[in-house]
Amino acid sequence: MSEKPELSDFELDALRETANIGTGSASIALSALVGQKVTIDVPKTSVVPVRQVGDRISRADEPVIGIYSSLQKGMSGNILFVLPQTSAFALMGQLKNRDEGIAHLGKEEMELLKKLGSVVCSAYLAGLAKLFEQRIEFRTPNIVSTVGSSIVDFMLVQIADDEEVLLISVAFNTETPRIDGTFTLLFTLSTLAPLLEKLRRKMGMA
């Protein structure tokens, strides 16, 4: 395992800005899909132990649908798109033009969610790829239904419990129908060094 880098406030700010770019692209893609204005909050950046990640992303007991993927080329990390269950059902209703929403996630809806996840992840990562001037690829997203405190376990099956992670998270919502959600990008500190090096070079700090 490589050495864990120390992050300065400036670097955290720069990473937050990086997330802003990715989130902006993702929200435009989501907005085009649902035909609604998508409002995004200011991204939150923090370094936290793995076990605390779940609570940072959603309320612990809230039933959620997670669409998650890992980066496999260009960068090492995970991307997660979390929706409270009610929002996931409202989103599917919107995508399927059903004002009353949908009753459950059948195979068709699961496929639709995966496609939506792919589009949103692609848009999110396209912004980062542009910034870092390199191609970033991700695995086909997985869908999971669980509670808020457990969602992160699915993303972190390959990461040791005692790791610390850099979490870049941003909440978004639409008004009608009400859809709330969170995009999260996560890097283990031990794999962050190359990313920081690029960021420093980009900012003329290296």
Binding site: P63, I65, A103, H104, L105, G106, S145
Partner: peptide
């Protein structure tokens, strides 16, 4: 049972 209700009626 709530989890099953996500996928089936």
């Amino acid at each position: 049972l709530s989890t099953l209700l996500i996928y089936e009626d």
